[in-house]
């Protein structure tokens, strides 16, 4: 028989429940304030831009080329340029990003070299976009002699978002439960069969979401494209990846830098279109994610 345990007794408590509850309410208020501040700024921005932008928004605005005459100016070339560039960026960055992520998560030995690679990918994600512009100018425009083309711009932006795509895809691949891999290997599946049939399908919603969010960063990028020389007057539809081009943010930047008030309104119209495109992309991300989730 062991002796009965000594029950804890004595000692003073000072619960101060009212004070603790007050601190809790203050913290609650601060968090709410943070949300309100963020959302309010966004609403102000949208209202302000829309007030100006909606004045110029019309079918003509969407289908006209840029012009010296504000009444005739539109964003046709910029929209087509953005579409071209974004499609190519997606086609380049998605397979490279997913491939790199699958390699790092499923194939790479867990050694110092892999960790070094991993750290550098994270660092690359933080490199200012203008630096990618300089890289694009030196490598794609000059060395590969692609000129100031859609392809050169797309390659530059693809490099810019590649680290983000890799990291997002890695996280999605890592989140696939190990028990699924074991189940697959246990049936005599090879590594490729396991990745193809189980890891990628389960990771795909996360990969797609990450990729589209990275793309919506790319669609607003201006600096690297100015760097590789996309800041030009374009009054034709780009018809191949080797044509010169302009994109929405550059067209907006262009107009904002002109002194006349009419061009400021045109810039606001461009911003509304760009925001709408962004919203559309993010909505697509959510829809794709839900679709895959339901199929699982």
């Amino acid at each position: 028989m062991s002796p009965a345990p000594i029950a804890p007794r004595g000692g003073r408590f000072e619960p101060r429940i009212a004070h603790r509850q007050r601190v809790g309410r203050v913290f609650h208020g601060l968090c709410l304030g943070a949300v309100v501040f963020g959302m309010l700024s966004l609403v102000v921005l949208i209202v302000d831009v829309s007030a100006d932008g909606l004045q110029v928004l019309s079918l003509d605005f969407l289908t006209n080329y840029a012009s010296r005459i504000p009444d005739r100016a539109g964003i046709r070339a910029a929209i087509l340029g953005s579409l071209w560039v974004m499609s190519l960026v997606a086609v380049i960055a998605f397979p490279l990003g997913v491939g790199a992520a699958v390699y790092l998560e499923e194939y790479a030995p867990k050694n110092r070299l892999t960790r070094l690679l991993q750290t550098n990918i994270a660092n690359l994600a933080g490199v200012p976009s203008i630096v990618y512009g300089i890289l694009g100018l030196a490598v794609f425009v000059r060395f590969f002699a692609l000129g100031r083309s859609v392809l050169a711009g797309a390659l530059t932006l693809a490099l810019l978002i590649l680290p983000v795509v890799i990291i997002a895809a890695q996280e999605a691949v890592r989140a696939v439960p190990g028990s699924l891999r074991e189940a697959s290997y246990g049936l005599g599946a090879t590594r490729w069969q396991t990745i193809r049939h189980h890891v990628l399908p389960v990771a795909m919603p996360g990969i797609l979401t990450g990729t589209i969010l990275a793309l919506s960063r790319a669609i607003g990028e201006t600096a690297p494209l100015i760097m590789i020389g996309a800041l030009t007057f374009i009054a034709f539809d780009p018809a191949s990846p080797l044509d010169a081009f302009t994109v929405l943010p550059i067209q907006i930047y262009n107009w904002v830098s002109l002194p006349r008030q009419e061009f400021q309104l045109l810039a606001a119209g461009g911003i509304v279109v760009l925001l709408a495109a962004l919203l559309l992309m993010n909505a697509t991300a959510i829809l794709l994610r839900n679709k895959y989730r339901n199929e699982l």
Binding site: G186, A189, H198
Partner: peptide, 23 residues
């Protein structure tokens, strides 16, 4: 092998059994 925690693939019942056959 059968594991400690049931780990069916997040697919149909049919596909769970068919997977090992297909591969």
């Amino acid at each position: 092998m059968v594991f400690q925690k049931p780990n069916p693939f997040p697919k149909s019942i049919f596909e769970n059994v068919a997977f090992g056959l297909r591969i």
